[in-house]
């Protein structure tokens, strides 16, 4: 239950953030690309939340402290580089995680096997853009480096064990995941002529915080917007 919420909330919240790009993307081709990724994630979220209960009750009626997503995915979009870095950090992690879950015998293996194909594409999209932005113009390089730096401290949380997910059958070893993630992200970032930050991957008290229901301030406003209509009509069907 906790694991389904953790994975489901990651997908739900990131999908919501990507949905905020609609009508604002830097070029029409990216309107379509970002929406595709958001739709994939929303589809994953619906399956995962349904494992834990009623998808709409969970999405619309939980308080902020009951959400189990990573703080990384709730971070506001910022500029396109910021969004792409968030995509890189998360999609590489999600891809590696789902590959491992798919290969394991855990409860999430079938779901992960389907989602891993979608996530591979999200990862590719992020990597392609990091290369172009990092090795593009001076401005795009600067913005992308700023994104890497700003979001770095939210990456440590991805490697905290999740209750109900990291069992012996799950195929997930968080230390191995961290090493593999770091190698993959470093390779992309260096090819893009950028530098991966070297500071701590999480703030002092924040390690694993999102998974415990401790979120950052922008998240409250995000779910206020997401939930207001649903909550304004208690019991209504849509």
């Amino acid at each position: 239950m906790n694991a389904a919420l953790a994975l489901g909330d990651d997908a739900l919240v990131l999908s919501h953030r990507l949905g905020e790009w609609a009508g604002h993307a830097p070029v029409l081709e990216e309107e379509v690309a970002l929406a595709n990724i958001a739709l994939d994630l929303l589809g994953q979220a619906r399956v995962l939340l349904s494992l834990a209960g009623d998808e709409d009750e969970l999405a619309y009626l939980r308080e902020e402290r009951a959400f189990r997503n990573l703080q990384l995915v709730e971070q506001p979009n910022g500029d396109f580089a910021h969004t792409i870095v968030r995509q890189l950090y998360f999609s590489v992690y999600q891809h590696l995680l789902y590959e491992r879950l798919a290969a394991g015998d855990g409860a999430f293996a079938p779901l992960a096997a389907k989602a891993v194909k979608e996530v591979a594409y999200h990862r590719d999209h992020a990597e392609q853009w990091v290369l172009r932005l990092g090795d593009g113009t001076e401005e795009s390089h600067r913005r992308t480096q700023a994104g890497l730096d700003a979001l770095w401290r939210f990456t440590g949380e991805m490697f905290q064990p999740v209750e109900g997910l990291d069992g012996p059958d799950s195929g997930v070893d968080r230390e191995e995941l961290r090493t593999t993630w770091l190698t993959a992200v470093t390779e992309t970032v260096e090819r893009a002529t950028l530098n991966l930050p070297t500071g701590p991957q999480s703030g002092g008290w924040a390690a694993g915080a999102g998974r415990q229901g401790l979120h950052t301030e922008p998240f409250g406003r995000m779910i206020a917007e997401m939930q207001h209509l649903h909550r304004s009509h208690p019991g209504a069907s849509w």
Partner: peptide, 21 residues
């Protein structure tokens, strides 16, 4: 999109706006 009152409606609306692009 960010206020769609159910996840089903949200997916439909995102797909529709994407189609328009």
């Amino acid at each position: 999109i960010t206020r769609a009152p159910s996840l089903r409606r949200k997916a439909i609306l995102m797909a529709k706006v994407q189609d328009e692009a």
